[in-house]
Design a protein around this nucleic acid. Structure first.
Lengths: 255, 255
DNA sequence: GCCTATTTGTTCGTATGTATC
DNA sequence: CGATACATACGAACAAATAGG
């Protein structure tokens, strides 16, 4: 019916761009979820009070950014999630991306020595308050930011690992320098929350957008915790898959 | 530094209740995440422009509802998630709840015969457009709604299962009447989005709050799909855990 | 297969404001 | 100042694909 956002009279930018931004926000917010069908061009034009051409221009932009999929005669749909990451004992996001012919890069955005809170401490099997190295890394899927990972490394042991990560662009490679040749996931906890204020500019989301939150604990081949991580992912770009059939049965040791 | 929500002058209800609602919204939104420490009572009082007693009253209410945890001398914290549900091949939410001494009930809120969309059809290994029975059930953890599950059953086979579910209060029991004695998870996909308009009143969330979205496919012991489900959970009450060590290795068939 | 309604795709034309030479 | 080019926006009509009966 009524209800739709009115285009502010005196505002920045041409109409089609304002419309693009409105739709983009709704998609990244999840208000328009992957697979959802948009109203018809005619209806959108009427709601926004513009010509159909103007709406089409906005839609075309979002199609180029692969946020929308348009089918002649059927309608316009929100693109399905691009990256379905299968959680297994050794799977990495970059591995999943590469298998799909895409590239997932890291960019370190902050490094800091902090005191382990209770959760981190428990995961790393140290005492709360002991120093750990926090490394915040932006995760970029083909240039677009899709998530942020805050990784925590126990400290005397892995001091300086942030420089190696930056150098190699890979946590696995950095670990090798410390004699760790195998990174194994022990546990992953999955939740959701509204994006934090600090993450908004990094992820390019609107305030209040939901993010998937992962808390993960990784161990070496001997079962010693080597890393704990809190990551936040934009749900439009990434989802997580538990495929019970392909999960590696565990032989041998651990906890 | 400013920033905090101003209490509307002429509004509904006493000050402490308005404050309680503001804090509650922030918690259920995830803006204040589980484990987060609240500002001190004094600071909250100052920001809201009220007496410390008023703030305490609001906090007490939220403590009774187990949204907050107060530690004398340390501070006030957002309660950790109550239900950490371990995903395994056979785990059920109600099982997890029972193991923790809590009760998880179902209440059917809608039943409808619909045409399977592409996703549901693929999961159930039928053709898109074939009829399936959609049963929407509210999930109540000790009376409070924590999620909604939309379950899809292939249709000639399980017609009328909604009445059996309502009768027994259990999907597993209902399945037995159809000769299905084992429900096995084949795949679970996890994402997030903003709560849909329709779910807002059922879950008691604020508009725009994040929800965890699960898409799951269940099969019988012969590997035939018997149910697909889309569930939405309030992230404050539930989180999902993948514990790679305790995941059952798979023996025998499937897929 | 046919007919119809719906929805996107395409191509005209017209008008307006802004920047540039 | 005028002439020109460009981006923006609206309007109308028709073509092409899809879905349903």
């Amino acid at each position: 019916m009524a209800g739709d956002a009115v285009l502010a009279g005196a505002q920045r930018g041409p109409l089609w761009r304002q419309i693009r931004q409105i739709l983009e926000r709704r998609i990244l917010t999840g208000e328009l979820a992957p697979g959802d069908q948009l109203p018809t061009e005619a209806e959108l034009a009427e709601r926004f009070g513009v010509n159909r051409h103007t709406v089409r221009r906005a839609i075309n932009q979002l199609r180029e950014r692969s946020l929308l999929r348009v089918e002649q005669g059927r309608g316009t749909f929100v693109r399905e999630r691009t990256l379905g990451h299968k959680l297994t004992r050794r799977a990495t996001l970059s591995g999943t991306a590469k298998a799909l012919g895409r590239q997932l890069a890291r960019r370190t955005v902050a490094v800091e020595v902090v005191k382990a809170d209770r959760t981190i401490a428990a995961a790393l099997q140290i005492s709360a308050g002991e120093p750990v190295l926090q490394v915040d890394m932006l995760r970029l899927l083909d240039e677009t930011p899709v998530g942020i990972a805050s990784n925590y490394f126990p400290l005397p042991r892995f001091s300086g690992i942030d420089r190696l990560i930056a150098k190699h662009g890979s946590v696995a490679r950095a670990f090798e320098a410390y004699g760790v040749n195998d990174i194994i996931h022990r546990q992953t906890r999955i939740g959701a929350r509204a994006v934090s204020r600090a993450d908004v500019p990094l992820l390019g989301l609107a305030r209040g957008s939901p993010v998937i939150v992962l808390f993960s604990v990784n161990v070496d081949s001997a079962g010693n915790p080597i890393e704990a991580g809190r990551s936040r992912y934009a749900p439009h770009w990434v989802e997580f898959v538990i495929d019970y059939d392909t999960l590696q049965p565990v032989f041998g040791r651990s906890g």
